[in-house]
Amino acid sequence: MEVKEMTCIRCPMGCRLTVTKDGDNYTVTGNTCKRGEEYGIQEMSCPMRVVTTSVRVIGGVRPVCSCKTADSVPKAAIDDVLKALAQLRPVAPITIGQVLAEDIAGTGVSLVATANNRAAN
């Protein structure tokens, strides 16, 4: 059995949840509504996060370009995503929404640019 305390972030109430995992069974207490239960189970079983960061760019007006994972990735995979994108060196010009890497760090999710970076002339 595994027990975890956490703050529900689905609304500003910020209820303190206690989530218990017993085999495949989850129980959530401390929540005020159903969304808190969902959140607690998700956070206990497989917390997911969108990674928003930046990559170094070659030949751009700015040395870096901001980017994000197009969807959320498992929290446990964040380190691998960061390591993988540290190796990327996309070449300017880069436009918003451009895919910088497909299937970043084997997550099945692509990395997309969130800003424009014009080529320096």
């Binding site: 956490m6 703050t7 529900c8 972030i9 500003p12 996060r49 929290k75």
Partner: peptide
């Protein structure tokens, strides 16, 4: 700050 930022930026 927002709860979400406390959780996802600090606690994480």
């Amino acid at each position: 700050g927002l709860n979400r930022n406390i959780v996802q930026c600090l606690v994480d």
